[in-house]
């Protein structure tokens, strides 16, 4: 098995004034080229865990490692370049006063990738096309796009610096149902084509089953179950995982057996 590219050891995070830790001794390992889903309900600590992996919040105790190195020994720019993120709500994650091309070019500019404007513009056009938008869309502003298209813009921004790891925090739960599957399909295609390592946080087991080989079920800041997605879904070992599965609203089963 390949060495982990991103991992957390005994991560614990206390927020001031709380009686319980948001993370309580969590171990997580992400191997290159794999996809990991982190599942749980509100308050499970899944977003806190993602923020640790993203390096925007520090654990109270425990350690994050990137390519075997503790995070504080990794060059900041290198880490940012390799680890990118897509947030839940593109209405909030895109600056309303910036044209799309500037939004997508932001990591290039800030990380000083691409020597000049022309190279950067070329890269922006490339990633916009990759997510199913047109290069001309770069001149428009976020509010001119639908929710699904805005999430495509956010994905384009994350892809722009050609990261190895893509983190996604509930990337479809702010979108309309009919658009969700399109974005899931897009994410899966991109992960396959670009050989990305994916860490996906979601409350929805169905979405995780679509995108992730491995799943980590969290509750109250702890990991209650961890394993290959198919195993966890077909044969959940933990009682909470079973409850979670049973609670998913489903269409009548007989309907699904039809071709």
């Amino acid at each position: 098995m390949r060495d982990p590219i991103l991992s957390g050891y005994q991560l614990t995070r206390w927020f001031p004034g709380r009686t319980h830790p948001a993370l309580d001794g969590v171990d997580v390992t992400v191997r290159p080229g794999t996809s990991l889903g982190i599942v749980g309900e509100s308050g499970a600590g899944k977003s806190t865990l993602l923020r640790q992996l993203l390096g925007v919040d520090r654990p109270t105790s425990g350690e994050i490692r990137f390519a075997g190195q503790p995070l504080n020994r990794v060059r900041h720019r290198e880490f940012r370049r390799q680890v990118q993120v897509v947030f839940q709500d593109p209405r909030s994650s895109l600056n309303p006063r910036m044209p799309v091309a500037s939004i997508v070019a932001e990591p290039l500019r800030s990380l000083r990738i691409g020597t000049d404007r022309a190279t950067r513009a070329e890269r922006v056009a490339e990633v916009l096309t990759a997510v199913g938008l047109r290069p001309e869309d770069g001149r428009r502003y976020p509010h001119e796009f639908s929710g699904g298209q805005r999430q495509r813009i956010a994905i384009a921004r994350a892809l722009a610096p050609a990261p190895r790891i893509l983190l996604a925090d509930e990337p479809v739960s702010a979108l309309d149902v009919s658009v969700r599957l399109q974005i899931i399909d897009l994410l899966r295609d991109l992960v396959d084509q670009l050989g990305l390592t994916l860490v996906l946080v979601s409350h929805d087991l169905a979405i995780v089953s679509q995108l992730c080989q491995e799943v980590l079920v969290m509750r109250h800041g702890r990991v209650v179950e961890h394993g290959p997605t198919t195993d966890v879904l077909t044969n959940p070992a933990d009682e909470y995982t079973r409850a979670l599965l049973a609670a998913i609203p489903q269409l009548p089963l007989d309907l699904l057996e039809e071709p």
Binding site: V177, S178, R180, L181, L205, A206, I207, S209, Q210, T230, L233, T234, L245, I248, Q250, L251, L253, L255, L256, E257, P259
Partner: peptide
């Protein structure tokens, strides 16, 4: 039709044991 199709797909995903097709 579109709504039913996507809901059916999601239901199948959440229930790998009744999933007809493989992804």
């Amino acid at each position: 039709r579109q709504l039913v199709a996507s809901a059916a797909r999601v239901t199948r995903l959440a229930r790998p044991n009744v999933r007809g097709e493989d992804r």
